[in-house]
Write a protein that binds this DNA or RNA. Sequence first.
DNA 1: GCACACAATGAGACCCAGTATCAATCCCCC
DNA 2: GGGGGATTGATACTGGGTCTCATTGTGTGC
Lengths: 140, 140
Amino acid sequence: MSDELLRALDQAGVRLTGPRREIAALIAKRNGHFTAADLIADASKRRLGVGRATIFRLLDLLAEQGLVERVDLPDGRHAYVPCEPSHHHHLVCVACGAIAEVEDCGIDAVTAEASRRSGFTIDSHRLELFGRCPNCRSAN
Amino acid sequence: MSDELLRALDQAGVRLTGPRREIAALIAKRNGHFTAADLIADASKRRLGVGRATIFRLLDLLAEQGLVERVDLPDGRHAYVPCEPSHHHHLVCVACGAIAEVEDCGIDAVTAEASRRSGFTIDSHRLELFGRCPNCRSAN
DNA sequence: GCACACAATGAGACCCAGTATCAATCCCCC
DNA sequence: GGGGGATTGATACTGGGTCTCATTGTGTGC
């Protein structure tokens, strides 16, 4: 579960402290996206005694390593999703919060076209897709 | 300059009050993106006496009318860009902040492909492209 | 196995963007 | 010109996130 996260952190030369293990476990226990506030609530509910700052710090670390990514929900809030370090994009289920990853599926052509039309060079992009996952679709 | 914004607001049945005219002028005077904080600073620098709340309220109104759009910069900050009401995406110059709009250029194919692979239905998406505008590219 | 240098921690103060409240004011329609 | 409802600004508040700093814990070299 959380082993994967921990292993990746270890390999990146990050110290594996108690609080970090606990937070990693909380993250692993969630599926789909979560907010920093979710983790903070989880932690306090279980009286883990980890501070807010520690949670934000770990999230930063994980984001740096590409193990977690920040997505901006349609309502403007921020959430994090655990994910593979390779480049990809996220599908977010607006009903239940489930996340799917999609590898590049033709976006390069889009950026190339946009670049051609505008004269900009494009360094990076952000693509987020919002909809309903198969479960929520059939449940409705 | 700001006439366009004001005209559009007027047509939407929004009252054209003094503060709104002034804020519209501030927006028109900027080119490229700006943050709410920028406008607030502008307003206070010129001692316009418009309150923070009024600025946020007008931005909401403009966003509702599609005259302005919120983009999330790569560093996580929020900015607004004045734009046409039709659906489109933004190219943001990370050097000078200039903005270009690109109409749909193949993104539908991407969302369709992502939908096919994941089983999600896709309601909406967000695409932002970051790079350098022609000016900044040659200036470097 | 131990000690040590230094990274990491948690508590709390702090900051900033954005929102809510509410009495006073201003627009627009008649 | 008058009236009613929308708008305004001051201010308090909220919530996410950062900073500080004394204390604690970790991995490394021995």
